[in-house]
Design a protein around this nucleic acid. Structure first.
Length: 169
DNA sequence: TTAGTGATATCC
DNA sequence: GATATCACTAAA
């Protein structure tokens, strides 16, 4: 069953752990549909979270982060890797969940987006209604938490917040 | 450990 | 206008 608008409009700290175990579906340009189970997520929470892109204020890049929960937020890092996030919370609350890994072999935030052929053109899709990209309910495996990775530039306490959620099975 | 890669934010 | 920085990966 497809995850709804109501689900995505909850707080990011509710949605991020609940997304682990859910299944992402992607319809490729040739019409075939592939899917994968989410194994790891990270929460980025609001303009006060110094690790969140929105901490620098509302810019052209972060504009989609300010939309209502359920939108996709896709951007390029290091000039070569597309990272995929799901916007959460109400409109104007810049929160998002980074989908960090699926089950093997797609165990990296840019590995699975490459396999699923996700690029900047998938920024701003509305997942509850999209035919190209959507998420369905899955199992709820036991989780462990850890600090987020790749955000050394952020000051404490944000750098150490245990906002990374990893499936244990 | 390092190169590869280019959009974006930030500073002139 | 310019430049420094980056929510990473693969190869060595």
């Amino acid at each position: 069953m497809r995850l709804s608008q109501d689900f995505f409009r909850q707080d990011v700290l509710t949605v991020a752990p609940a997304l682990v175990g859910a299944v992402i579906f992607r319809r490729l340009p040739d019409g075939s549909v592939i899917h994968g189970r989410i194994a790891e997520t990270e929460a980025y929470r609001g303009s006060e979270d110094l690790a969140c892109h929105a901490s620098r204020g509302r810019t052209r890049r972060t504009e989609t982060l300010y939309r209502a929960g359920g939108c996709s937020y896709v951007y390029l890092v290091y000039g070569l890797h597309w990272l995929f996030n799901v916007v959460t919370g109400p409109e104007d609350a810049p929160q998002g969940v980074l989908i960090r890994a699926m089950d093997k072999p797609f165990d990296g935030p840019a590995k699975w987006t490459k396999a699923f052929q996700i690029t900047g053109e998938h920024n701003g899709l509305y997942l509850p209604e999209s035919d190209v990209l959507w998420i369905e309910e899955g199992d709820r495996p036991p989780l462990r938490t850890a600090p987020r990775v790749g955000i050394d530039y952020a000051a404490e306490p944000w750098k150490s917040m245990p906002w990374r959620f990893i499936a244990q099975q």
